[in-house]
Amino acid sequence: MVRDITLGQYFPGNSLIHRLDPRMKILLTLAFIVFIFVATNFQGLALMLAMMLLVLLLSGVPLSQYLKSLKAVIFIVAFTFVLNLFYGGGDTVWSQHFPGFTMRITNGGISNAVFVAVRIFSLILFSSVLTFTTSPTQLTDALERLMKPLKVLHVKVHEIAMMMTIALRFVPTLLEETDKIMNAQKARGADLESGGFMQRIKSLIPILIPLFVSSFRRAYDLAMAMECRCYHGGEGRTKMKQLHMSGLDAAAAVCSALFCAAVLYCALRFPAALR
């Protein structure tokens, strides 16, 4: 069923990474993503990769799942890799003369290409660790708390988090509804599978319109139900589940900080491989 895929992002478990406070996980993920860009030489890059491998193994999620998440970007990575290969500076490694122009691969181009590819892969992998080991509710909850300081800037933090919670809650419901409407339209003779691209897009209209209408009806009902349960915005609201930072979170923060310091040291100590 379609329904099983959407919430399949999260792999329930009890690994070290699962047990970290979601706020810490979000912060560390951000820090790692920043430091991927701080690492400008192969020494730093190797350190980052070692760290990543360690995190992936600690998460207890099968490595094949991570590989699956890389599939989505493989085309972009291949494309930028090839492009970078031919557009770098430095010593020429390989060249080929064509009438009118010369194709050349330089060592600068190679290192650029490798860096960009590794960086994109790392971005995906680090964020995968976050979504694989943190439940959607934990994520929205942590985001609400982390964004709290933004309230000073009149950002509607609570409202954003509430919208995310409701959206997540209604994903399976709406998918089920889509299924029903598709079957209902098929039973009335709608042809959803054949025809060209435009034809197929057009055939989606009789599915989208009823889905839209019913979503509005649901939204109206839900708003009423929320009001019945005394919802009146984020003011004076408490939470059943409090987030707690533990020793584990402190340890993770210290390890990560040491690690990032090492990467920073490499960046300053060794010449940049990136031009």
Binding site: T137, I166, L168, L222, A225, R229
Partner: peptide, 10 residues
């Protein structure tokens, strides 16, 4: 249409 969160106890 009247359940708000994606986990029963929440």
């Amino acid at each position: 249409n009247q359940l708000v969160a994606s986990i029963v106890e929440e």
